[in-house]
C-alpha cells in the first residue's frame, strides 16, 4: 500500500511539474496584462511539435533523408546523427538543442501573437484580448491539424527502467528540470533588473513607464518567457506520453489555468504550488477514488478553496476600496 501511495505521488509530482511550467505562462501574462491568455495552451502544443521536429531533424534517418533531398546544405546533419544518438554526451547535447530551439521559437511565436493580436487591443475592453486569444488558439490548433498532422509519435529518448516507486529516468528528468526552471525564474523575477521592471510594470504600468521602463519590451519579454516555459512542458509531454497531438494543449491548458488560480493568479510561487497540488490531487483522486471523476474532484477542491480564500492559496483576498 505504501508503495502504491508513493507511486501515485510520483505520478502526481511529474504531472504537477508540467502543470507548474504551463501555469507560470498564464500567471505571468495575467500579472502584467490582467488577461487570460487562452492561446497559451497552443504554445504548449507548438512547443511539442517544434521540439519533435528538431529532434527528428537531428536523429531520425528517414526525416533527415527527406529534408536533405530538398535542402542539400543540411547534409551535415546526417553525419552528426551517429554522434547524437550514439553517445551519452551527444544525447545530452541533442536534448539541449531540442529544448533550446523549441523554447526560443515558441517564445518568438508568443511574442508574435502579442505584437499582432494583443498589443492593438491593449486599451480595448478587457474581454477583447481574451477573445482574440481564443481566435489564435483555434487558428493554431487547426494549423497544426491541417498543415502538419493530427498526431505524431514521439520517440522515447531515455531508457525505461524503474528505480522503485515508479521513479523512472523520464520522471526524474521532468521533475528536476522543472524545479530548476522554476527556481531560475523565481530568482530572475525577484533579483535581476529586468525582473524588477516586470514587477514594476505589473504594479502600475503608467508609473513604471514614467520611471523609464520600456513597457512594450517588458510585455514582449513576458510573452517570450511564458511560451518558452510552455514549450519545455510541451516537449516533456511528448517524451512522457510518447505522442504529440494537435489538441494536446487543451486539457493541460485548462488544468494549468486552474492551477494558477488555485495558487492565486498573478503570483509566481502560487502558480508553482498550484501546479504541483493539482497534479498530486489528480493522481491521488484517480488512484484512490475514480479515474472517471478525477477532474471533478480537482475542480471541487478548487471551488472550495476559492470560497474560503477568494484570492487563491497564496494571493491575498480582494481588498474592497471604498
Amino acid at each position: 500500500m505504501f508503495n502504491y501511495i508513493v507511486s501515485q505521488l510520483v505520478n502526481g509530482v511529474t504531472l504537477g511539474g508540467m502543470y507548474a511550467l504551463i501555469a507560470l505562462g498564464y500567471t505571468l501574462v495575467y500579472g502584467i496584462l490582467l488577461m487570460i491568455n487562452f492561446a497559451h495552451s497552443e504554445m504548449f502544443m507548438s512547443g511539442g511539435y517544434i521540439g519533435l521536429g528538431v529532434l527528428n531533424l537531428l536523429s531520425n534517418k528517414a526525416v533527415q533523408a527527406a529534408v536533405v533531398a530538398r535542402l542539400p546544405f543540411l547534409a551535415f546533419l546526417q553525419s552528426a546523427r551517429t554522434f547524437f544518438t550514439g553517445s551519452t554526451i551527444g544525447m545530452i547535447l541533442m536534448l539541449l538543442i531540442v529544448f533550446g530551439i523549441s523554447a526560443v521559437l515558441t517564445g518568438c511565436l508568443g511574442m508574435l501573437t502579442e505584437r499582432f493580436a494583443y498589443r492593438p487591443l491593449r486599451n480595448a475592453p478587457r474581454l477583447c484580448p481574451l477573445i482574440s486569444a481564443l481566435g489564435i488558439s483555434i487558428f493554431l490548433q487547426n494549423a497544426a491539424l491541417l498543415w502538419i498532422d493530427n498526431s505524431i509519435p514521439f520517440p522515447s529518448l531515455l531508457p525505461t527502467r524503474d528505480f522503485g516507486f515508479g521513479i523512472t529516468p523520464i520522471r526524474i528528468f521532468i521533475i528536476v528540470t522543472s524545479l530548476i526552471l522554476l527556481f531560475v525564474l523565481d530568482r530572475f523575477v525577484s533579483t535581476t533588473r529586468i525582473g524588477k521592471a516586470m514587477r514594476a510594470t505589473s504594479q502600475d504600468q503608467d508609473a513604471a513607464g514614467l520611471m523609464g521602463i520600456d513597457i512594450n519590451s517588458v510585455i514582449a519579454l513576458t510573452f517570450f518567457i511564458g511560451p518558452a516555459l510552455g514549450a519545455v512542458a510541451g516537449i516533456f509531454s511528448g517524451m512522457y506520453y510518447g505522442v504529440v497531438t494537435y489538441n494536446m494543449g487543451f486539457f493541460p491548458g485548462i488544468k494549468s489555468f486552474t492551477a494558477a488560480v488555485l495558487g492565486g493568479i498573478g503570483n509566481l510561487r502560487g502558480a508553482m504550488l498550484g501546479g504541483f497540488m493539482l497534479g498530486i490531487i489528480e493522481a491521488l483522486a484517480s488512484g484512490f477514488i475514480s479515474s472517471g471523476y478525477k477532474d471533478v474532484i480537482a475542480f471541487v477542491i478548487l471551488i472550495i478553496v476559492l470560497i474560503f480564500r477568494p484570492g487563491g492559496l497564496l494571493g491575498e483576498s480582494v481588498v474592497e476600496k471604498v
Partner: peptide, 17 residues
C-alpha cells in the same frame, strides 16, 4: 487591486487599461 506583498509579482489593474 489584489495586492500581494513580498518578492512576488503584484497584481493590480494597470493604469493603462
Amino acid at each position: 487591486s489584489t495586492r500581494v506583498e513580498g518578492d512576488v509579482l503584484v497584481n493590480g489593474v494597470p493604469a493603462g487599461i
